[in-house]
Design a protein around this nucleic acid. Structure first.
Length: 187
DNA sequence: AAGAGGATTTGCT
DNA sequence: GCAAATCCTCTTA
């Protein structure tokens, strides 16, 4: 099961587009993802080796790697690499296809289009937090995405040039591209 | 033991 | 367009 979601994150990422992730009573059809290739990828949390935070990425595929950022947001990855090889795919955005009422209640004031448009919003709508780190999510293949675009990953300061972000072309639920924030101090 | 920084979002100027 | 919000985790000493 989930063979199509296991292996090299660069190959799995485009295959995840269109797949449906269900958690907390809400289902999201993935429209935007990013690949993180573990130890050979300077942008990966696993680049500097195993720590208590990224431990799940070193485990078997099919589990969620959830992390906490900016003091208030959660982001979720699907671990894809074989045990010992920490590859993962960041779930950046999607379209809510089931449980819309619950999703709306978790993000009051949001338009339906924006409900899961961004990695932290997606987690919010699916009720994913650190407590879900390491769980096996409910994931099903969906309608295949017809046209796929790819480009640089979002928000990274390291290895930002690698075109490892994949999204469904012309999908309104894809997040808007923002280059990494510039350093305030330093040079 | 302490400090810096972050795979973001939101609201205000 | 820019900065605040806010705390976990890693790095360095």
């Amino acid at each position: 099961m989930l063979d199509w979601a296991e292996g090299d994150p660069l190959e799995v990422a485009p295959r995840l587009l269109g797949a449906v992730l269900t958690h907390g009573g809400v289902s999201v059809r993935l429209t935007e993802v990013e690949a993180y290739a573990g130890p050979r990828d300077p942008g990966s949390h696993a680049y500097r080796g195993r720590t208590s935070r990224n431990e799940v990425m070193f485990g078997p595929p099919g589990h969620l790697y959830v992390y906490f950022v900016y003091g208030m947001h959660h982001c979720a990855n699907l671990v894809t690499g074989p045990e010992g090889d920490p590859g993962a795919v960041l779930l950046r955005a999607g379209e809510v296809v089931d449980g819309v009422d619950i999703a709306r209640s978790r993000r009051p004031g949001s338009t339906d289009r924006d409900l899961a448009r961004g990695p932290a919003r997606l987690c919010r709508v699916l009720d994913i937090d650190l407590g879900d780190n390491g769980v096996r999510p409910e994931l099903a293949p969906g309608e295949p995405v017809v046209q796929i675009s790819r480009g640089p990953r979002v928000g990274l300061r390291r290895a930002a040039e690698l075109p490892w972000r994949f999204w469904a072309t012309d999908e309104p639920t894809v997040s808007t591209y923002r280059p990494a924030a510039a350093r305030r101090t330093g040079r």
